[in-house]
Computed example of a mutant assay.
Amino acid sequence: MLISIMLNGKKVVDDISPDMTLFKFLRAHGCYSVKCGCETTNCGLCTVFLDEKPVLSCAVLAARADGHKVETMEGLQKEAEEFGRFIADQGAEQCGFCNPGMIMNAIALFREKEEPTDEEIKQYLAGNLCRCSGYEGQLRGIHAFMEYRKNGGATCGK
């Protein structure tokens, strides 16, 4: 089955098996930020943007992405690095397991909500398994990043 996907701004055409997941397609095309920790849609590591919306790539067939736009962290490097610094600053990337999904969903949150409430933040991050930090560091990082953006990119208090 021949499919065409706009992957991180580049057109990718490939002949795939009908049962290939988007996760496996992305890994086969060098998107190593996309990880799969559970294969049951419970960890959030495989989160990517499909037409600007976060989806779990382990639960989407690659054929469903035919003709659509897919973005991974490789394609969102600038946004991911900018926000990722705030997560690291709060000690929330202890093992790094949850970072890909956490960052992708935080980017989706920031694109959709100017000033999200704690409840909205928790809803966006609900599908991301964090093994070691208890999510408090991520929440602090998100608040620090929102303050940074509110101040026009100037770090508050530094």
Score class of each variant (00 low, 15 high):
L2E: 12
L2F: 00
I3N: 01
I3K: 00
I3P: 00
S4K: 13
S4F: 03
I5Q: 00
I5H: 00
I5S: 00
G9L: 10
G9Q: 11
K10W: 00
V12Q: 03
V12W: 02
D14M: 07
D15P: 00
I16M: 06
I16F: 03
S17V: 04
P18W: 09
M20R: 06
T21C: 02
T21N: 02
T21D: 00
L22V: 08
L22N: 06
F23W: 07
K24V: 14
F25W: 03
L26A: 08
L26V: 09
R27P: 02
R27M: 12
A28I: 07
G30Y: 02
V34T: 07
V34D: 03
K35Q: 05
K35C: 03
G37K: 08
C38H: 07
T40D: 11
T41A: 09
N42L: 11
N42Q: 13
G44Y: 11
G44V: 14
T47S: 15
E52I: 02
E52Y: 02
K53E: 14
K53V: 04
K53L: 04
K53N: 09
P54H: 11
L56Y: 03
C58V: 13
C58Y: 03
C58H: 09
A59G: 08
V60Q: 11
V60E: 11
L61N: 13
A62C: 10
D66V: 12
G67W: 01
G67Q: 07
G67R: 05
H68T: 12
V70I: 10
E71N: 15
E74W: 00
G75W: 01
G75T: 08
L76A: 13
L76F: 00
Q77K: 13
E79A: 15
A80D: 10
F83H: 12
F86G: 14
F86E: 14
A88S: 08
D89K: 06
D89M: 05
Q90G: 08
Q94Y: 15
Q94C: 15
C95Q: 04
G96Y: 10
F97V: 15
N99I: 15
P100E: 08
I103H: 05
N105P: 04
N105E: 06
A108T: 06
L109F: 02
F110D: 02
F110G: 06
E112C: 07
E112V: 09
K113Y: 07
E114Y: 05
E114C: 05
E115A: 14
E115R: 12
E115N: 13
P116K: 13
D118G: 10
E119G: 11
E119I: 05
E119C: 04
E120L: 00
E120M: 01
I121G: 03
I121S: 04
K122C: 04
Q123R: 08
Q123D: 11
A126C: 04
L129W: 01
C130A: 07
C132Y: 06
S133C: 13
S133D: 08
Y135F: 12
E136T: 10
G137N: 09
G137P: 02
Q138L: 12
L139P: 06
R140S: 13
G141R: 02
G141S: 01
I142T: 06
F145M: 10
F145P: 02
M146E: 10
M146S: 10
M146C: 05
M146A: 12
Y148H: 02
Y148K: 00
R149G: 11
K150F: 04
G153W: 04
A154M: 08
A154S: 10
T155R: 04
G157W: 11
G157C: 14
G157R: 14
K158V: 09
